[in-house]
Design a protein around this nucleic acid. Structure first.
Lengths: 192, 192
DNA sequence: TCCAGAATCTAGCGCCGCTAGGAACAAGAG
DNA sequence: CTCTTGTTCCTAGCGGCGCTAGATTCTGGA
């Protein structure tokens, strides 16, 4: 029986290795460089082994994304609790969000841009996804006034996501990022 | 000389055919289905002919995107001038923008999501791109108050883009779209 | 020591974007 | 009308992709 356990442990370790290799490779060379052949070489197994752990490449990316949700939720929480007031909390969370996207672009893409097979606005979403959303919602709550909190949080999130993706793809000048972020926070916190 | 002219005309027609085929194929089956082989078959020429017109597949997508900017600019202009007042103009333009993205998803992706080799915030951006941006800016101007118009327009645009992309990728429930859009417009037009 | 079943690999399928090299063709010169 | 020259276009193929069938190797228990 102990043998079986060791087997399962080794298998779990290998799965972790696949996810780490995918994340590292994506962060250093972009997702285009993450091929099943390179991943297999990285973990020193043959290609088909990947398919005994994951349904396909998209599932590997989804697994990387799930890891990212935990990191993002942590960053957002830290920013929120460190803020001095309600409006500062909104600004701090916004800053933390965009900074996460800038620091971990490949991870961010897996989470929010690339097509991956993950349930989002659904009960069986990965556990850390609603956690991150809840952090945003906590920051937004004081400025929600009469508005529905969930929809307002989604809207705020969308705005942050738009800023980040348009800037990252070269559609917005990076230099004006801080100004745009300030404007967004200002408009959302007005009159509350 | 007339022969040369006919040649050039035919060549221009073929280039148009390539762009149309790419757009149609992308809109009916998605960009993944747009391969150089299928495009070549569609225009009834061999694959290498594509490369005598465009540097590569990305350049074809960029050409499709450029066409889209003209369409979007037209939609935005129509929405803006038909609106009854300043705030209604903001709402109308926002609605027109997201509706364009919903109706022409593949085109929208080429324009704003996929990596294409196009200059954006730069003097040599395709002519219709600043036109679309100017339409947005015209709608935003009355609500800019003391804020810098360009940065505010970029921020508003980003929010629309975020709403659209997160919804389209299944990260936001489609059912709440109108509510989110209304919240966005409300927050941007507050106190002006 | 042998065997059944699990674990893993080799080899290959059909596709991709892209390109080298040659065939077919048309335009001007004699 | 024939020949040369330059353009146009195609056939064929390169290396790489995600993924999988089938063979092979390994391993725990009889």
């Amino acid at each position: 029986m102990a043998i079986r356990e060791r087997r399962e442990r080794e298998r779990a370790e290998r799965e972790r290795a696949i996810i780490s290799a995918a994340r590292d490779l994506a962060e250093s060379e972009g997702w285009d460089a993450v091929t099943t052949r390179r991943l297999a070489a990285e973990i020193e197994y043959s290609q088909p082994v990947l398919y005994s752990h994951f349904k396909g490449k998209e599932a590997i990316m989804a697994a990387v994304a799930v890891e990212g949700f935990a990191d993002l939720a942590r960053d957002l929480a830290a920013a929120r609790v460190a803020a001095a007031g309600e409006r500062q909390a909104v600004a701090a969370v916004a800053e933390a969000y965009t900074s996460f996207a800038e620091r971990r672009p490949a991870l961010y893409d897996a989470m929010f841009t690339l097509r991956v097979d993950l349930p989002f606005a659904s009960p069986d979403a990965p556990i850390d996804l609603p956690r991150g959303f809840a952090e945003l919602a906590d920051a937004v709550r004081p400025i929600a006034a009469g508005d529905e909190l969930e929809a307002l949080t989604e809207t705020f999130w969308s705005a942050l996501h738009g800023l980040v993706t348009l800037m990252r793809s070269g559609r917005l000048r990076r230099a004006d990022h801080a100004r745009r972020l300030a404007l967004l926070v200002d408009r959302f916190t007005r009159g509350t």
